[in-house]
Amino acid sequence: MTLPPPRTPKIENRESKIAPPAPVRTLIEITGLDFYYSEKKALDDIHLRLPEKRVTAFIGPSGCGKSTLLRCLNRMNDLIDGTAIRRGSIKINGIDINRPDVDPIELRKRVGMVFQKSNPFPKSIYENIAYGLRIQGINTKSRLDEVVERSLRGAALWDEVKDRLHESGLGLSGGQQQRLCIARALAVGPEIILMDEPCSALDPIATAKIEELIHELKRRYTLIIVTHSMQQAARCSDFTAFFYLGRLIEHADTRTIFMSPSNPQTEAYVSGRFG
């Protein structure tokens, strides 16, 4: 077995590092957000604007609130008893997603999520992708076939699984399972994809494939990635936000965060002195 050649950064990415991308439209706007687990304050006065069709990485040591903030964006925290946003707002396309007339079910169709541990259902590959459509009542075979193929192609998995669509999704390798979960999220047609440490359980080769996929996906989707790997943040994000103890310490384009951070805590973290 031969090791793959060292990856050269994509041209597109290098350009974006040389010249920061032209000002882009803000898709998500977080203002003064305070978030509590029961009485414990997990997020403290977060102000953040996230650009459309770019990759933003959330970095920071464990327990800094980055995953909590991510899960606020599709209201997954609603499912945990005792959580509450006490102050502030999150607006997507100008709509406050915590407004009473926002249905979290509809929100989650537009804001997909990929989890740390790949979690395909114990069903066939095909049914995993079709799941999101079936729950919306779409059962037409031709429509499902079309979406399954499109989503699998979108997640760069089609060529690997096209001959075994009806085998269990759990028979795939870890990296393939994670791409299956990405494909499953793409199938419901989201605008935003949240990724919660998508590569933390994967080997470097599988990680490289996911990162390549992230580069592809940002042409059509807005991506937000929580990651523990600073190399990953540096490799595949356009913007980086550094969190520490529930506060947003610094948010800038990725090159600035890693090359010349303005906050000493950021500098200490990205240079590996703590965290």
Partner: peptide, 22 residues
């Protein structure tokens, strides 16, 4: 596993759909 529930809910399934199908 909790992942099945979260995976299903994150795709826009209702709680009942999640219980019933996942």
């Amino acid at each position: 596993p909790r992942g099945f529930r979260e995976g299903s809910l994150a795709l826009g399934a209702t709680k009942w759909q999640t219980i019933r199908k996942a």
